[in-house]
């Protein structure tokens, strides 16, 4: 049962990543692209967690934590760069 749910989850998250990739490529404004990148990070996080369940390995959560932090910091840095023209004032 979990295997079926995992299969569904992998397919759904792959479709979600395709959606964000579409917005990342054709987004009309720069804020759209930042938003797409942020969503892509969150979807990738879910994909990594599902992969960890699939293999029964809890080591992958370290990678998930790292990706969550790096995604947040890069989003904030990019937004600050747009807002102020500088990341750290």
């Amino acid at each position: 049962m979990i295997d079926l749910a995992l299969l569904y989850g992998f397919i759904a998250l792959a479709l979600a990543l395709l959606c964000t990739a579409w917005r990342l490529s054709f987004g009309p404004t720069m804020a759209d692209r930042i938003l797409a990148l942020d969503t892509m990070v969150i979807d990738t996080l879910a994909l990594i967690v599902l992969y960890g369940i699939h293999h029964g390995r809890s080591v992958l959560f370290e990678a998930a934590i790292l990706i969550a932090m790096v995604g947040f910091i890069s989003t904030v840095a990019y937004c600050r760069f747009i807002l102020r023209g500088d990341v750290i004032e």
């Binding site: 569904y8 759904a12 479709l15 979600a16 959606c19 917005r23 938003l35 969503t39 969150i42 979807d43």
Partner: peptide, 12 residues
């Protein structure tokens, strides 16, 4: 995963 798909589809 359904909610994640819906959220990302809303992006389009």
């Amino acid at each position: 995963s359904t909610f994640a798909l819906i959220g990302s589809f809303g992006l389009i």
